[in-house]
Design a protein around this nucleic acid. Structure first.
Lengths: 220, 220
DNA sequence: CGGCATTTGTCAGCGAAATGTCAGCGCCGC
DNA sequence: GCGGCGCTGACATTTCGCTGACAAATGCCG
């Protein structure tokens, strides 16, 4: 069970992480909206705890963006006590639950568990990027309607590029995403993956910008 | 959209009925636990609003009885403000959501809508997935009309996969579902179960996507 | 309580798929 | 033309999932 905590107050974040870790979650933290959006969009979490007041990009916008991109993981919003309009907005934006501050850690954990129970088996919409279609439910991709038989690593690359949109992604960034910083690989490992991917997708899907990185050709 | 309101205070019940009717629900009301249990158990509702403090039979017991009988409609519990332990109990009893009193009617409606959105497509007592038929009442499964003599664990795997639809389920997720996080098993335990299952179902039912997980072949 | 049958977990080993590494080459941009 | 980045194919290695046999746990019945 992997959980992303989005909270800018380090004290609260630490409390949350503590309670959830004790409850058996693996927790990761980010403290601003931009980072939250990116992490939640590229990694797979079983649960997200989302504070609304965030620097750089507020929580509701983060949530809306995730849902617009088809990310369907359960999200529990932390709201200020009594701000019922915030709650309604949150639900409309695609939140699965909210918890008014202050709250008991026991309750947070109970609701987290319930959310996950409820959310398991939820459907992730498919992403269509011109010729490329990504279906995270079935873990498959297709180009021009032709199924690609992708390996896990290959699919992860494709999903990451898709999330980046038409932005050029540096090899370093991709390497860091695929493997952590701890067990790094040769830069060539990535090139090999890309090569195998291209052999399956055919030309016109993954582009190279010499000296910069890779991008999704069909996303622009 | 048919909604059952279980509430013994006539004023609150009237308010609820008003708001929900304006929101497009057909509402029906009962004021005590016995009546609630009977109505909810014999009629089909899209949503139940359930107060916990009820005469004759308290709300939690009603809910537990419904769930024990296999009634799966979404239930929104009304709790007294701040009684967080009551909320936890409610969730454990099978509630889909709760709302602390007092609350705004706008919020109730928003949450009711969200609940129904979430609950639509919930499992049917007898599921037919192409060649595979699951009967949860009798706890049996059959393929091409041929009965499978499944063990409890095997059936649980099949039901979970069926619930996931055509989604690919990771071994981790399945393991966590079958056993809790507390008494974990070797990953191989699952593989053994799958193997035995496949021997009984024959080929073409449970598929593997190497590196991703398992899926129901006949659900796609 | 004890024995039997069924269910379930563990182990070791195998084969195949996925991934990493390497060496060499082509091609882009200067 | 040249230097180097990035691509490619071949090969090595690692990981993953399946299988069959056995052991442990569970449950049932007398």
């Amino acid at each position: 069970m992997r959980c992303l905590i989005v909270e800018d107050d380090p004290r609260i974040a630490a409390d949350l992480a503590g309670a959830l870790t004790r409850a058996g979650f693996r927790t990761e933290q980010v403290a601003d909206g931009e980072a939250a959006w990116f992490r939640g969009g590229t990694e797979d979490y079983d649960l997200v705890i989302l504070d609304l007041g965030l620097p750089r990009l507020d929580g509701l916008s983060v949530l809306k963006r995730w849902r617009a991109e088809g990310r369907a993981m359960p999200v529990l919003i932390l709201t200020a006590r009594g701000s019922w309009n915030e709650r309604v907005e949150g639900i409309d934006a695609g939140a699965d639950d909210y918890l008014p501050k202050p709250f008991r850690m026991e309750e947070l954990v109970a609701r987290a568990r319930a959310l996950i129970r409820r959310a398991s088996g939820r459907i992730n919409p498919v992403q269509t990027l011109d010729r490329l279609v990504l279906d995270l439910n079935r873990q498959v991709a297709s180009v021009d309607g032709r199924m690609l038989n992708l390996t896990p690593l290959e699919l992860r690359v494709l999903v990451y590029l898709a999330h980046a949109g038409d932005r050029v992604v540096t090899p370093t960034e991709l390497l860091e995403h695929l493997y952590g910083d701890e067990d790094a690989r040769e830069a060539n490992a990535l090139e090999a993956v890309i090569a195998r991917l291209r052999r399956k997708t055919g030309p016109g899907i993954i582009g190279t910008r010499r000296g910069f990185g890779y991008y999704l050709d069909c996303a622009r």
